[in-house]
Design a protein around this nucleic acid. Structure first.
Lengths: 214, 214
DNA sequence: AATTTGACATACGCTCCGTATGTCATTATC
DNA sequence: GATAATGACATACGGAGCGTATGTCAAATT
């Protein structure tokens, strides 16, 4: 019978394990996910898991690497199709927030990941997202659009603000309204990066502006 | 012999459990901390733990509540002794970052806490710190120092940036240099909050300023 | 003085993880 | 082409940790 090639079978096994773990981690969380259970759901046993990933943490790393690669790809698409560098940067930040709204990303990447694997700034994958953002900021600085500031530092602060904003939004009882508030405040902060003459889009409001809700 | 009153004994037991757990959680982390071990180190057993705190998560909540109360107290001191509201706010942010540099706070409050107890923005205690910051921003807005922006949203973004900055600093190989970069970039972002006329402390080399008429 | 409450300790079972070992197919060697 | 060797898994075993159920003893209540 047409048995598939060896390498494909193995890759398929790894993919099945990662997929099963991703679902389990994303739904019940890392700590509550039983290795026996989700390997069985993939038609396998823990033997396969330990063979391919060493331990439970190794599998979490693989899952996060997969998710992170997807995130990076999505970010690149967003920033690539913007008209200006600055707009691309802003769009990328917005996309970052939107991704962080997804429960699977929140749970696996933002909560369990740091607890199990340590600080995300040390992960190779997370650094990819930061590096992408840093490069954009570097270009914006060379271009003269933003003030002289360390690109990586700014990128980390901005991503930190984005992630927290996302978690706040996702857990609020009215995500729509919260999102609007967060994005508005976010843009205000980002304008701190812009050089004075470049500031745009702020209505230059007189003394006491009261924004009326909705 | 002079036996102490009942209530004091009980409070002492609770305090011993919280202290032992705090040390264990802070050093080896929540997941690796054995209840048998650290209750024994307090001269007790898990029986006492379950009686007072329900389960391991309950004890973590108590530990975090204690740490958070300390953090809030420190923040209040910092913001109270500043000359201006804005300076108080900036100082508070800086203090926030400095506290987040402490390993115990990083591990328990910033990493394990969210993984075990869920999103920090839902904790009563964490909300206290945010609320304190929000109040300051509200006053700054009323005062006309900062632009019209939702105080809570800004507070959450700023705290998010602070926390991430802290983790980045703490895990960098050169914390001193990283800290300088982060604080500088942080101030730049914060200036986004300031209204145009109020901007201070930026050297502002006007290469090609294109000032739109106010 | 008798009873009740409550603060703990002890005992038990269960789940889960990691390792050590076994099995079978594929690949390499001759 | 038969045999040895490798590698991908499954099975078996032991240990640790958690939660609960139960026991005990002092203090508070009556």
């Amino acid at each position: 019978m047409g048995h598939k090639p060896r390498k494909e079978m193995i890759a398929e096994t790894r993919a099945k394990l990662v997929a099963a773990a991703r679902h389990a981690f994303g739904s019940v969380g890392y700590a509550e996910a039983s290795m026996d259970d989700f390997t069985a759901s993939a038609g396998l046993t823990r033997g396969a898991l330990y063979h391919h990933f060493g331990d439970k943490k190794g599998l979490l790393q693989a899952v996060i690497a997969e998710i992170d690669a997807e995130m990076l790809a999505r970010l690149k698409i967003v920033s690539a199709r913007a008209d200006t560098l600055w707009q691309g940067f802003v769009d990328e930040c917005t996309a970052y927030i939107e991704m962080a709204l997804e429960p699977e990303i929140q749970r696996i990447v933002l909560r369990d990941g740091p607890a199990v694997l340590g600080d995300p700034s040390q992960w190779p994958s997370q650094n990819e997202c930061i590096r992408s953002m840093s490069e954009n900021l570097q270009k914006l600085r060379d271009e003269g659009t933003i003030v002289a500031v360390d690109p990586e530092a700014a990128a980390r602060l901005v991503s930190g603000a984005s992630l927290h904003a996302a978690q706040w939004i996702a857990n609020s009882e009215n995500p729509e309204a919260t999102s609007k508030k967060a994005v508005k405040a976010f843009n205000v902060l980002l304008e701190g990066l812009l050089r004075q003459g470049r500031r745009i889009g702020r209505a230059q409001a007189p003394a006491e502006v009261n924004e009326s809700p909705a």
